[in-house]
């Protein structure tokens, strides 16, 4: 692969263990501006650990991690200004109003209150949420919270986005909008690191797919490349094949037969 620009994310032989359990067993990857990377793998494969390491939330790894060409040291924090993050679990200070929460986050990212406020309100309006801008978040539905999280991750115009299941809880129309937003952000040269369990979506929007299993990268390439390698028709099938899971039919049969008992 040839890239005119420098990689924004580089990891070399990234390993991490909790107690005697290795969560990551040598992750090597490079991510470039403009890529939408579908980061997929079974539960417990190490996806979120990788992301948390890059965000500086998890320490104690071995190997090299570079963001924006800078080594991730214990003290590094300024680089986070260029990162947006939507965690899998919707965690926010939900007894604040949307306005209060978003301006606070904006200010943490270095915006002024006025900038953050005006931007947040206009972005909320895009999702038709301007009427609840001053309502407490704990009265919001799951989809509304997810939209607030998305806005909070984008207020400061980050260069790299880590999105963990960003579409969960959104209705079909909002899904379309968010997918299009991601495509356009990537076209502007932003890097999107996208984790999801919904293979159809990953297949459609990712320009590159990284599949990890058991703490190792087992596939890396565009959907077409993966398809050519594994001779399977859909990403779901490729996923099953590469993670060594073939028994879904038998498993389902067993499941149903247990249900039918008694």
């Amino acid at each position: 692969m040839h890239h005119a620009t420098e990689p924004v994310i580089v990891t070399r032989d990234l390993r991490m263990r909790y107690g005697d359990r290795y969560v990551l067993q040598g992750i090597d990857l490079e991510a470039y501006p403009g890529q939408i990377i579908g980061y997929i793998g079974p539960n417990g494969a190490g996806k979120s650990t990788t992301v948390k390491i890059m965000l500086g939330l998890v320490r104690g790894y071995t190997g090299e991690v570079k963001l924006f060409g800078q080594d991730l040291s214990e003290e590094a924090y300024a680089y986070k200004r260029r990162i947006g993050y939507v965690p899998e679990v919707v965690e926010l200070f939900d007894n604040l109003t949307a306005c209060e929460y978003l301006t606070f986050v904006g200010e943490l990212y270095g915006l002024t209150y006025e900038e953050a406020d005006s931007k947040a309100l206009r972005l909320m309006a895009m999702f038709e949420l301007e009427s609840v801008y001053h309502a407490r978040i704990n009265s919001f539905s799951k989809g509304m919270r997810q939209k607030v999280m998305l806005i909070a991750s984008l207020l400061h115009n980050p260069d790299v986005l880590f999105l963990d299941e960003p579409l969960s809880g959104l209705d079909a129309n909002s899904v379309m909008v968010v997918k299009e937003i991601m495509t356009q952000l990537a076209a502007q040269g932003k890097t999107i690191f996208y984790s999801s369990h919904i293979m159809e979506v990953v297949e459609k929007i990712s320009s590159r797919i990284i599949l990890i299993d058991g703490g190792r990268i087992v596939a890396d390439g565009s959907f077409e490349e993966l398809k050519a390698q594994s001779q399977e028709g859909s990403l779901e099938q490729i996923f099953n094949q590469l993670t060594g899971f073939h028994a879904y039919k038998q498993l389902a049969e067993q499941f149903v037969s247990i249900v039918r008992e008694g």
Partner: peptide, 15 residues
């Protein structure tokens, strides 16, 4: 408060 971890520590603020 664990939310501090994912909300505050992901921001460009010195620990």
């Amino acid at each position: 408060d664990l939310r501090d971890k994912s909300i505050l520590h992901t921001k460009p603020v010195h620990p």
